[in-house]
Amino acid sequence: MRWMACELHSHTFHSDGRQSLSELARGAKALGFECVALTDHNTMTGLLGKEDVERETGVAIISGMEWTTFFGHMVTIGLTDFVDWRPAGPGDIDAGIARVHAAGGIAGMAHPFRIGSPMCTGCFWEFEIQDWEALDYIEVWSGTFPSIKTDNARAFRLWTDKLNEGYRIAATSGRDWHAQDATDDPVSVTYLLLDEDEGSATEQAVRALAAGRAAVTMGPLLTLELRSESARYRIGDRVPKEARGWRYEAVACVDFEARNGLWAFPDAGYEVILTSNAGPLGELRAKPSQRDYRFDIPGGALTWIRAELRGTVRGARTTIAFTNAIYVDAE
C-alpha cells in the first residue's frame, strides 16, 4: 500500500474555471500532486482527452462532477457516466446519493458552510440528509490556507459531530481550483492510501476515499496506526468489538519529507495530538528529525480515534494536518 497526493476539487473552462485540463494537470504536477479530480459544475465534458493528458503529464485524473444547485454543492467522483443532478431537491438529496452509488461513484459535501447567495449561489449546504451513513465524505477544508477559515472550522466541527454520533464519514480537502494563478498561501493535500490490488490509480483512489483511508495536510504527511499485541489497524479500519477491552499503542507518523521543497513552516513548533470521541488522549512535541510518536491508550472507551498536527503558520497557531479516523465497533 502507498500514499498518493491528490487534489479532489477542481474546474476547467468547461464550467467556471480559467484553465484547460492539460494546464490543470501540469499545475498539479508542479505542486507535487500525483492525482487530480476534475469536478466541473454540472458537466463532464472537460474530461474529453483525459487519457492523453494523463500520458503527457503522468498525473492520474479522476472523473467527477460538482452537482451545483440552489440548495448546496455536492462533489461526485469515480463516475464514468453522467448522473443527472437536476432532480435533486432540498428534501431528497439521499435519492441523488443513491443514484451516484448505483453508477459506481461516491459523493461528498462541498464547502458546506461557505457563504451562500448572493455571493455564491448554493454554496451553503441546505439539503436535508436523512441517512448520514450514505454520505461518503465531507470537504472540511476548502481553498488555500484552509485551516484558518471560519467556514472550514464549522465543517470540521460538523465532521467531528457526525463521528461522535457513530457515523463513518471521511474528511477531505479541496482547493476548489479554478485557475493557474500564483499563490504563496499554504496549499492543502488529501493523501489517499492505495491498496494497489487491482485497477487503475484512479480506481484505487476512489476505493481508498470510499473506505476513509485519507489524511489531509498543508505540509508533512501525518498517518496513524493502532496496534495491539496481535493486530494492527490503519486509518479507515474498524477495530472489532471483541478487541475493545485491549490496551493499544497508537503510533502517529510524521513524514516531513512529503512533497519536499513545496512547503515550509519555519519555527512551527509542531505538536502531535491524539484525539477521539472521549476527547484528547495525548500530546507530544514533534520535530523534523523524528518520525514516530507513540501513545499508550485504553481501547475500551473509544469509538473513533484520529491524529492532528498543530503548529505556527504565519503567526497563527493552527492545525497543519489531520488523519481520518480509525473506528472501534460498538458493543
Results as ranks from 00 to 15, higher is better:
residue 154 R to K: 10
residue 154 R to N: 05
residue 163 L to H: 14
residue 164 N to M: 08
residue 166 G to P: 10
residue 166 G to D: 00
residue 167 Y to S: 02
residue 168 R to N: 03
residue 168 R to K: 09
residue 168 R to H: 11
residue 169 I to S: 05
residue 173 S to K: 02
residue 173 S to G: 10
residue 174 G to H: 08
residue 174 G to S: 02
residue 176 D to Q: 07
residue 178 H to P: 03
residue 178 H to F: 09
residue 179 A to I: 11
residue 179 A to R: 13
residue 180 Q to V: 15
residue 181 D to K: 10
residue 181 D to P: 06
residue 182 A to N: 07
residue 182 A to Q: 09
residue 183 T to P: 10
residue 183 T to A: 02
residue 184 D to L: 11
residue 188 S to T: 13
residue 189 V to S: 00
residue 194 L to N: 09
residue 194 L to M: 15
residue 195 D to R: 14
residue 196 E to K: 15
residue 198 E to N: 11
residue 199 G to L: 09
residue 199 G to E: 02
residue 201 A to S: 10
residue 201 A to P: 12
residue 201 A to V: 15
residue 202 T to R: 13
residue 202 T to E: 15
residue 203 E to D: 06
residue 203 E to L: 06
residue 203 E to A: 13
residue 204 Q to D: 03
residue 205 A to D: 12
residue 205 A to S: 12
residue 206 V to G: 07
residue 210 A to N: 02
residue 211 A to E: 07
residue 212 G to A: 03
residue 212 G to R: 00
residue 214 A to C: 12
residue 214 A to W: 11
residue 215 A to N: 04
residue 219 G to N: 07
residue 220 P to M: 11
residue 220 P to H: 04
residue 220 P to Q: 11
residue 221 L to T: 03
residue 221 L to P: 05
residue 222 L to C: 08
residue 223 T to G: 06
residue 223 T to P: 06
residue 224 L to N: 09
residue 225 E to V: 14
residue 226 L to A: 13
residue 227 R to H: 11
residue 228 S to E: 01
residue 228 S to R: 08
residue 229 E to V: 09
residue 229 E to Y: 10
residue 229 E to R: 14
residue 230 S to A: 12
residue 231 A to H: 12
residue 231 A to Q: 14
residue 231 A to L: 05
residue 233 Y to T: 00
residue 233 Y to Q: 01
residue 234 R to D: 06
residue 235 I to S: 01
residue 235 I to P: 13
residue 236 G to C: 07
residue 237 D to C: 00
residue 237 D to M: 00
residue 238 R to W: 00
residue 239 V to G: 03
residue 240 P to C: 05
residue 241 K to M: 10
residue 241 K to N: 10
residue 242 E to W: 14
residue 245 G to V: 03
residue 247 R to M: 09
residue 248 Y to Q: 06
residue 253 C to P: 01
residue 254 V to S: 01
residue 255 D to C: 08
residue 255 D to Q: 01
residue 255 D to V: 02
residue 256 F to P: 11
residue 258 A to R: 15
residue 261 G to D: 15
residue 261 G to H: 10
residue 263 W to A: 09
residue 266 P to R: 07
residue 267 D to L: 03
residue 267 D to H: 10
residue 268 A to Q: 08
residue 268 A to I: 07
residue 268 A to F: 01
residue 269 G to W: 00
residue 270 Y to E: 05
residue 272 V to I: 07
residue 275 T to Y: 05
